[in-house]
Simulated scan of single mutants.
Amino acid sequence: MHVILDFDGTITVNDTVDQLANFAVAFQEAQDAEDASTKRARGEDGDWEARWTGIVDKYLADHKEHKAGYTPAEDARKTLEHELEFLRSLHGVDCKSIHRLRDARLFAGMAPDCLYEGGRQAVERGEDSENQDKKHTVHLRPGFAAFLEQTAAQRKWPVSIISVNWSDAWIRGVLRADDGDRKDTDIQVFANKVTDSGAIIPNFPRQNAPADLDHDHDDNVPFASCSDKVEALEAAVAAAARSRPEWSRALVYMGDSTTDLECLVHAGRNKDGGGGGIAMANGDGPATSKLIQTLVRLGYAVPHVSEADRFQRPRSADEGDAPRLAWARDYEEILASKILD
């Protein structure tokens, strides 16, 4: 079995984009404090908090406008094809926002080891029950360490992470905080990375980058959409096949947002030895998760893992092309359900 995980909201309880950006803001403010006279002489605006807030506001406005003008509307999209067309259409909106990050130089000068340490410290703050600093704190979903122990360590299953997060180094720092003894090479990460100039580009060679975007600054288009994640999934599967050719192509994918929809269905339809997709959600999943609600709107059954059949069972004729899907609040529920056994 090959386990592939989304990062934000899947390994972590919530999205960590704000925490990553807040770490970058603090870094740039510290740099400015060391070189304040030079910044003033150049007339540079050092209000990094305002730069980040402006990027968020413009993204939200772009997303709202795009969604309002898109047809068919959400409640009329009843097929997977229609939903994927909408999700893919958001690629330009996401890339425009990532390019604003580049132009604002929010991550300029941040080396990988700095971002790695930032991720590690964010989880350590989350483990401190007295720490109330939510702007710089990351929480992992319960049972994640035990889940990795059972899958990667005991069963020797390949485990990969694919994420549209802006920093693979940040992700690795979060993972290291979870288990300092685990080797970084034990888990392959397919995500974006931060360059010296502050540009955000994929950390793996792109195959299907859209041709209609501005490449004046970067040769590589940022890794941002649901279709990008499918490309990363295929890269992860190929890498696992090269390193562990003895393993079957059974595939389990876990994600929490609509950018994970295509990967979940892909894994759920896999006929090479079983597999499935698990939607991670907080609280009462079907009532609170946009991803689960979208899957149900498209006609898919998404039972809780405690009520779902095991993924590794032989595929029966009456299943047809229906993807094997389930949902869970955390990794403790997944382990207790034995859905992967």
Rank of each mutant, 00 (worst) to 15 (best):
Ala240Trp: 01
Thr71Val: 07
Phe311Ala: 08
Gln312His: 12
Ala177Cys: 02
Ser167His: 08
Pro202Gln: 02
Asp181Trp: 02
Asp318Ala: 07
Asp8Thr: 11
His82Gly: 14
Ala279Phe: 01
Thr185Val: 05
Gly320Gln: 11
Asp196Ala: 15
His91Ile: 04
Tyr253Val: 10
Pro286His: 00
Asp228Glu: 03
Gly119Ile: 01
Asp216Lys: 15
Ala236Arg: 00
Phe86Arg: 10
Thr294Ser: 09
Gln121Thr: 06
Ser197His: 11
Arg176Met: 01
His2Gln: 10
Leu80Ser: 06
Tyr116Ile: 00
Lys290Ala: 12
Asp272Lys: 08
Leu80Val: 10
Thr185Tyr: 06
Arg155Ala: 09
Ala50Tyr: 12
Ile55Arg: 00
Gln31Met: 15
Asp15Gly: 14
Asp196Pro: 12
Arg125Pro: 07
Pro323Phe: 06
Asp179Gln: 03
Glu234Ile: 05
Pro314Asp: 09
Leu80Arg: 13
Ile292Met: 09
Arg102Met: 10
Asp128His: 02
Leu335Asn: 04
Phe7His: 10
Gly92Ile: 02
Cys226Ser: 12
Arg125Ser: 05
His136Met: 07
Phe7Val: 09
His91Gln: 14
Phe23Arg: 06
Ala145Asp: 14
His139Leu: 15
Arg313Gln: 11
Ala267Gln: 01
Ala308Asn: 08
Ala191Met: 04
Arg315Asp: 03
Asn203Gly: 13
Tyr116Arg: 05
Lys290Val: 07
Tyr59Asn: 03
His136Thr: 11
Leu233Pro: 00
Glu49Phe: 04
Val138Gln: 06
Arg51Ala: 13
Tyr300Gln: 06
Glu81Ala: 15
Leu90Val: 10
Gln188Pro: 05
Ala122Gly: 00
Ala281Glu: 06
Glu332Lys: 10
Ala24Met: 13
Leu213Gln: 14
Asp219Val: 08
Asp103Lys: 15
Pro205Phe: 02
Lys64Ser: 13
Ala232Phe: 07
Leu251Arg: 01
Glu149His: 07
Asp75Arg: 14
Trp52Phe: 13
Ala152Ile: 07
Ser89Arg: 01
Asp330Val: 07
Asp216Asn: 14
His63Met: 05
Asn165Ala: 08
Tyr59Gln: 02
Phe311Thr: 10
Arg176Asn: 09
Thr71His: 11
Asp181Ala: 09
Lys39Asn: 11
Lys67His: 02
Ser289Pro: 04
Leu80His: 04
Ser160Arg: 00
Leu340His: 03
Glu74Ile: 13
Glu231Thr: 05
Leu233Trp: 02
Thr79Ala: 05
Gln154Ala: 03
